[in-house]
């Protein structure tokens, strides 16, 4: 069925733009994967090739071997990162959404001020906050404790802002109906609001997971056993024991979990909302 107000020429033009730009976006990552499966001698040939003549998993094997020499087993580090990322993501989504609902829909005393403060702090650049944050963590005795990575992710401003923006759009009448039925606000939040803003929190899962997965925790976690994957991988690359292919392999490995999260959640965004939209 032809959609409303669409011309064939316009569709073709749009599709061509998307394909061209899509290639530009995809190429560098394809190249990263190619570098990761190139045997070492192919990394240094002229002219450089965009494909691997003899693809191999040597780089990945070397990566595991190099990390085998580390004091802590590689699997342990991977599990650390997965653990921290999952907890951070779940907490971030729930806590941010819970706070976003009253900010979007209740005019309680202080709501405007609080929201403005939250959005404004989004603009404060992270590097200089590292020293004050470290002092806070030290005072709370959270150094070498995963809470030092997890708790700040719960306080992230991005999630709250995203959820609030979507909840603002919910029609008042929908909430009123639930209130007349005698539902309490907490129940309305879980039963009425959250199902309606599904695309928002599925999107937030992506942001939150990606942010916590890439967390190095470098300034708070010093215990080798507790270190997170990005830190350990950059140690491996920085030690000079690894060549370019191994670094590429490490990078490709790091990409996998956020990509999987993205694929799972994004297909849900499209599926749940493609026919409905938020109705008045």
């Amino acid at each position: 069925m032809r959609k409303l107000n669409r011309t064939r020429g316009g569709n073709i033009a749009i599709f061509s733009i998307l394909i061209l730009l899509g290639i530009f976006m995809a190429l560098p990552l394809v190249y990263a994967v190619v570098q990761a499966i190139k045997p070492i001698e192919e990394l240094y040939i002229f002219p450089p090739k965009f494909y691997a003549r003899r693809p191999t998993f040597d780089n990945f094997r070397d990566l595991i071997n190099v990390s085998g020499n580390l004091a802590v087993p590689f699997e342990r580090t991977v599990m650390n990162s997965i653990f921290v990322s999952v907890i951070s993501t779940v907490g971030h989504v729930i806590i941010a959404s819970m706070a976003a609902y009253p900010l979007a829909k209740h005019k309680f005393p202080g709501s405007k001020v609080l929201f403005n403060i939250i959005v404004t702090t989004l603009m404060f650049s992270a590097p200089v906050m590292s020293i004050p944050t470290y002092i806070v963590m030290a005072k709370l005795h959270l150094i070498n404790n995963y809470l030092s990575v997890i708790l700040p992710s719960f306080a992230s401003t991005l999630g709250l802002y995203l959820m609030k923006q979507f909840m603002t759009q919910l029609p008042e009448s929908m909430l009123e109906a639930a209130r007349i039925d005698g539902a309490r606000e907490i129940r309305i939040f879980f039963k009425v609001v959250m199902p309606q803003v599904k695309p928002a929190w599925f999107t937030l899962i992506i942001f939150a997971f990606q942010a916590s997965w890439n967390q190095t925790g470098g300034s708070f976690i010093y215990n080798e056993e507790l270190k997170l994957l990005p830190t350990v991988l950059s140690q491996i690359s920085a030690d000079g024991i690894a060549h370019a292919g191994v670094s590429a392999a490490a990078a490709v490995l790091l990409m996998i979990p956020p990509i999987v999260t993205f694929l799972i959640t994004q297909s849900n965004v499209v599926e749940t909302m493609s026919h409905s939209g938020i109705k008045e």
């Binding site: 976006m25 990606q210 890439n214 990078a251 790091l254 990409m255 956020p258 990509i259 993205f262």
Partner: peptide
């Protein structure tokens, strides 16, 4: 995807 991959 380029934004997903932290240090891409």
């Amino acid at each position: 995807v380029p934004s997903i991959v932290g240090n891409a």
